[in-house]
Design a binder for these strands. Structure first.
Lengths: 248, 248
DNA sequence: TTCATATTCTCAATTTTTGAGAATTGTGGT
DNA sequence: ACCACAATTCTCAAAAATTGAGAATATGAA
């Protein structure tokens, strides 16, 4: 393991179940000698990517919080999306959680969420959480808008074959509805957001309790999401043009 | 420049004013040949630390969002603090913003914030924003609890000499009040939070409009913050013990 | 197609990293 | 103050990775 990958391998050790590590544990987990692990940790420490916790244990450092803010402030999708999420939740008329998610490697990453004040449930999705590519309305809405070639690379030819019809239907309908696919008792409804110029494929979704999404309300929510997604695409285009204009 | 520093130098180029860079611009800014810059960017790309924006421009990648969530979920200060922030704002009785901030290198980093629903102002501090070490109630409350030796290293002997009396007064009073030091028209009141075991020095602060913080209310808010900070310190201790108990 | 620009590749010289163990630092207990 | 013990840094030659300049390839628009 060389270069950046060596550092990232250490950082990827930290997770919710094991949030702190000793250097000896890291060396063990990565099968490198302790002296090497110490050098790596020292470098990460100097950059604020890890920090010392209680004696001899280390945890992720505050640098991520700083970079996350920059992302929040400068990512075109989030700039276009954060107040759209708020208004979607408000206009939904029922307790709801709005999500903005995007493709991230071989997963789908939630990059922004907004929970209505009266929501008594909370979906698995939340800002920063990666989710599987082939499950849930949120992911499927994204997959449906990906070119077949890229899809095959991402999920494999067999998986693609078994989803082909479902994805075609989503593409035709312009939205995807899933009940209990991710969280028992919750329903998700998602619409895709695409911006070629920025290289973005994403989706906007609303999660509500299953029994609240019936008949006329389903139709209303769908219309709400569709127009919100259109608004976001419009904003992305405008933002892109401004950027190009001012930078070139 | 070698190892991790080489990659971080690229990442530190990205900021709010210049959120996207071409490889040529990076090579220029860092005074390295383009072929080297391309290699570095390729590695960062593979880890999701940068991603391609519109043609030939790159921006910070989504990996930071993922790591930020882990930080949110596992940092003991944030675990202890997020609902304390909420209740402090609620009990303040006036439009307010509560902040949880901590030492981060030679700056103070805001790691959590909570804005009351009726707040019509927003302070410079927000989650992820680093702020100067010697200005504002939030920072001073932290400095006041640092050992002199560490202080001298951080801000220099001269700066320390000129702040010595002020910091001693804060240490005695147990809180720090600043009016308009950071934002015109706003007042900040901060109390320190220290947890030796976790190696943490932080502060909890409330920002309100200047004219709202007078007489009896100042006293009430101070008491509110003091007890909230005590509650957080208690939680940090408990969390620390559980961790030690289960891991060793 | 052709052009122009973005990106990857090649290769020898240079620099960095590696691993094992020794040396040092730091901490708590006596 | 001392010791014992663990955490961390240091040392060194061998091994591996990075560097820089330019050539070679992609990519995309005209």
């Amino acid at each position: 393991m060389a270069g950046l990958a060596r550092y990232m391998a250490v950082l990827r050790l930290f997770n919710q179940a094991t949030p702190t590590w000793t250097v000896a544990e890291m060396a063990d987990a990565l099968a490198v000698p302790q002296s090497t692990a110490y050098r790596t940790v020292r470098d990460l420490l100097a950059e604020g990517l890890v920090e010392m916790s209680s004696e001899a244990r280390y945890r992720l450092g505050p640098a991520f919080i700083e970079f996350d803010r920059l992302t929040r402030l400068t990512d075109p999708l989030m700039q276009a999306g954060s107040d759209v999420l708020r208004s979607v939740v408000q206009e939904a008329g029922v307790p709801a959680v709005a999500l903005l998610c995007r493709l991230y490697g071989r997963e789908v990453l939630c990059i922004a969420d907004h929970v209505s004040p009266d929501a008594s449930f909370s979906p698995s999705y939340e800002r920063g959480r990666p989710m599987p590519l082939t499950q849930g309305a949120t992911s499927k809405a994204i997959l449906a808008r990906l070119p077949n070639k890229r899809l095959a690379k991402l999920i494999g030819a067999e998986a693609l074959a078994s989803m082909r019809h479902e994805l075609a239907a989503i593409r035709r309908a312009g939205f995807c509805l899933g009940r209990g696919e991710i969280d028992e008792g919750l329903a998700g409804i998602a619409v895709p957001i695409v911006c070629e110029a920025e290289g973005l494929v994403a989706s906007l979704s609303l999660v509500v309790e299953n029994h609240r999404l019936a008949g006329a309300r389903e139709e209303r929510v769908r219309a709400l999401l569709t127009s919100a997604a259109a608004e976001m695409e419009r904003r992305l285009l405008v933002a892109g043009h401004i950027q190009e204009g001012s930078l070139r």
